[in-house]
Write a protein that binds this DNA or RNA. Structure first.
Lengths: 186, 186
DNA sequence: CTACGATACGGACCGGCGGTCCACATCGGC
DNA sequence: GCCGATGTGGACCGCCGGTCCGTATCGTAG
C-alpha cells in the first residue's frame, strides 16, 4: 500500500516517541542523547534517524501533540481563550495559556531554543504563537504600533527565561504572570 | 619568580587571544572550534587549554577587555552614563550603552548565552549589568516593584534576541532602542 | 502456502567535538 | 653552563549526531 507504514515501522515509531518523551521529561532534553533514546526504545539508532531525520525533528515530533492540543483550544475552544471573547480577556487568557504551556514543556522547548541561530523562532509553531499574540494585542490597542511589544512579550515567554526566573531566581510564577499582564496592558 | 608568567607563556596567551578574537568576530563564535583557534594561533591545543581551562573561559577572556572598558565608562565616565547625572537620563544612557555593547559583541555573547542552563545569567558581568539596571530603574520609579521589569529589559537585551529582531526580522535598530526606552518608562 | 520485491532494521562506522595526558623542549635564576 | 620549574604540542580519549549497508521482516501476488 503506497504512502502507508508497515506495521513494525508504526510500532517502532510509537516506541521511540514514548521513550523520548519519558527521557526528555525526566532528564531534560539537553541531557538525553539519541543513543539513549534508541536504547530505551529497544531499537537501533538507524531506525530512529530513519523515522525522524534528525534530533530537532524528533523533539518537534514529541512536542507536536501538545502543541496541537493547545492550538485546538485557542482556535476552537470556548472563550475567553477561544474565539468570540472580549479582547482584553482574550489577550490575558492567551498569555496565561502560553505561560502554562511553556512551563509545562520547558525542557523540550529549551532544547529547541538552543539549536541554531533563529531555529526556535523559525519553528512554525512559534510563528503562529507570535502572530496570534500580535493579533490579540492589536485588538486591545488598536492603532498603536505593537510590533516591538509583541516580540518582547514573546521573548519574556521563552522557556529559558521563565525557567531562569522561576527556578534560578526563585521568582513566584504568579509574579511572572502578573508582570506579563502588566506589560501587555489592561 | 612566583606568580609570574614565563615570557613564552605570555607570548602564547596574547597570540591565542588575538587569534580567538579574530576568528570569533569573523565567523561567529559558535562556528569556531578550539582546534581552529590553536592552529590560527600557531600553538598546540594543550597550550590553549592550559592557559584558559575551557572554551567558555576563553570566550570570557576575549570579551573581558571590552566589558572592562564599558564598566569604566559606567562607573567613572561623564554623566549621563557615568555617575552624577539626572536619573531618567542615566537610565536611558545606560540602556543605549548596553544595547550598543550587546550588538557590537553579539557573536561572543551569543556563545555564552547558549552554554548550559543559566550560564549566561550566572556570569559575573551579567549579574553586574542586571543589578546596575535595577538600580537605575529604581531611581526613576522609586517605591515601585521593578524586579520583573528589570529582568524583562535585560532579556530584551540578550544578543540572540536583538540579533533575531535586527538581522532576522529586519527591524530597525532605532525601533529596538525606542521600544526599550518606552518599556523603561519616561 | 509460497515466493519474492519492497521496506525496515540495527549497530558498526564516520568525522569532529571539547578536553586530557605526558614525553619532551624551553626558560631563567644560580 | 647547569638544572629544576614551567610550558609545550599533538596523540589520544570518550562521546556526540548522523550515515551506511548486509540482513531480517513484511505483505502481496500467484
Amino acid at each position: 500500500m503506497a504512502g502507508s507504514e508497515r506495521a513494525d515501522a508504526a510500532r517502532n515509531r510509537a516506541a521511540i516517541l514514548a521513550a523520548a518523551a519519558d527521557l526528555f521529561d525526566r532528564d531534560g532534553a539537553e541531557q538525553v542523547s539519541m543513543n539513549d533514546i534508541a536504547r530505551a526504545a529497544g531499537v537501533g539508532k538507524g531506525t530512529l534517524f530513519r523515522r525522524f531525520g534528525d534530533r530537532t525533528a524528533l523533539i518537534e515530533a514529541v512536542l507536536y501533540p501538545r502543541v496541537a492540543a493547545m492550538l485546538t483550544l485557542v482556535e476552537q475552544g470556548p472563550p475567553p481563550l477561544g474565539p468570540g471573547g472580549e479582547p482584553v480577556a482574550a489577550l490575558h487568557a492567551y498569555l496565561d495559556s502560553l505561560l502554562d504551556f511553556v512551563w509545562t514543556n520547558r525542557t523540550l522547548i529549551r532544547a529547541l531554543e538552543h539549536h541554531g541561530p533563529y531555529a526556535y523562532y523559525a519553528n512554525p509553531s512559534s510563528q503562529y504563537w507570535i502572530s496570534e499574540l500580535a493579533r490579540r494585542l492589536n485588538a486591545v490597542r488598536p492603532g498603536e504600533n505593537t510590533d516591538y511589544l509583541t516580540h518582547v512579550l514573546f521573548t519574556a515567554l521563552r522557556a529559558d527565561v521563565i525557567d531562569y526566573l522561576v527556578s534560578g531566581r526563585r521568582m513566584d510564577p504568579d509574579r511572572v504572570r502578573a508582570g506579563l499582564h502588566r506589560l501587555a496592558g489592561s
